[in-house]
Amino acid sequence: MIIGILDLQGDVEEHQLITEKTFKEMNIEGTTKLVNVLEDIKDCDGLIISGGESSTIGMHLKKTGIYEYIKTSGIPILGTCAGLVLLSEKTDQDQPLLGLINASVKRNGFGRQRMSFETDITFNNEEYHGIFIRAPYVDEISGDVEVLSKYDDKIIAVKQNQYMGIAFHPELTEDTLVHKVFLNEVLDYIA
């Protein structure tokens, strides 16, 4: 299994480390690969889009052709923070969106950088410690979108088909729960 990690912004190395730790815990033969241009993604079984500035990431995806590849390939994607915004079909800014999850997302929904926080949440029915940095939240869903987590009555994690978007940063913890859920999705997809 090869998991691509978009190498543009965000905690790229941290996502590599936690994904490799998850491979070991799940006893999966796998590796991570940095993705920056179209050729990089073509042998990947899944993709992680980490945090950063979602409009800049979206423009990069379009410029490199990765955007169209993602839209047509069906590759499973984990989007964290800015990745959640990109996976949604609507947000409160004019920017490129993949539209793979029937959700509307409020960028920086929990406030600016100084309002970042950590808190215990329930993710996928399990206890988890969430780290929120200029975090978005989902303010509307439709169709078969599954809610994986809420905080303060706000939706902070969703899944639709093979796409999972979360508002917090699992790569900044030692807990592999989020990456386990994602790798199980990839295993189902490639089976």
Score class of each variant (00 low, 15 high):
Tyr163Arg: 11
Glu127Pro: 00
Val138Ser: 05
Val147Arg: 03
Arg134Ala: 08
Lys154Asn: 14
Asp144Ile: 00
Lys159Thr: 04
Ala167Asn: 07
Val138Ile: 15
Asp153Arg: 12
Asp120Trp: 03
Gly111Met: 15
Ile166Gly: 00
Ile133Thr: 00
Ala167Leu: 03
Arg112Trp: 07
Ile155Val: 13
Gly111Trp: 13
Glu140Phe: 07
Asn161Arg: 12
Ile133Pro: 12
Phe110Glu: 11
Tyr137Arg: 08
Glu118Val: 14
Val145Ala: 09
Phe110Asp: 09
Ile141Cys: 12
Pro136Asn: 05
Ile133Phe: 01
Arg114Asn: 10
Gln113Gly: 00
Ile133Gly: 11
Asp120Ile: 03
Lys154Glu: 05
Gly111Asn: 13
Glu126Ser: 13
Tyr163Thr: 04
Arg112Asn: 11
Val145Leu: 09
Ile131Pro: 13
Asp144Gln: 14
Val147Asp: 00
Asp153Glu: 14
Ala135Glu: 05
Leu148His: 09
Gln162Ser: 10
Phe123Pro: 01
Tyr151Cys: 01
Val145Tyr: 06
Asp153Thr: 12
His129Glu: 13
Lys159Val: 03
Asp139Gln: 10
Tyr163Pro: 00
Phe168Pro: 12
Val145Asn: 09
Ala135Leu: 08
Gln162Met: 08
Ile155Tyr: 08
Phe110Pro: 01
Tyr137His: 14
Ile121Trp: 00
Ser116His: 03
Tyr128Ile: 01
Gln160Met: 09
Leu148Thr: 07
Phe123Arg: 06
Gly165Val: 07
Ile131Gly: 08
Asp152Cys: 04
Gly143Thr: 12
Ile166Asn: 06
Asn125Val: 09
Arg134Cys: 00
Ile121Ala: 02
His129Gln: 13
Thr119Glu: 15
Tyr137Gln: 10
Asp139Thr: 05
Glu146Asp: 11
Pro136His: 06
Tyr137Phe: 15
Asp120Thr: 12
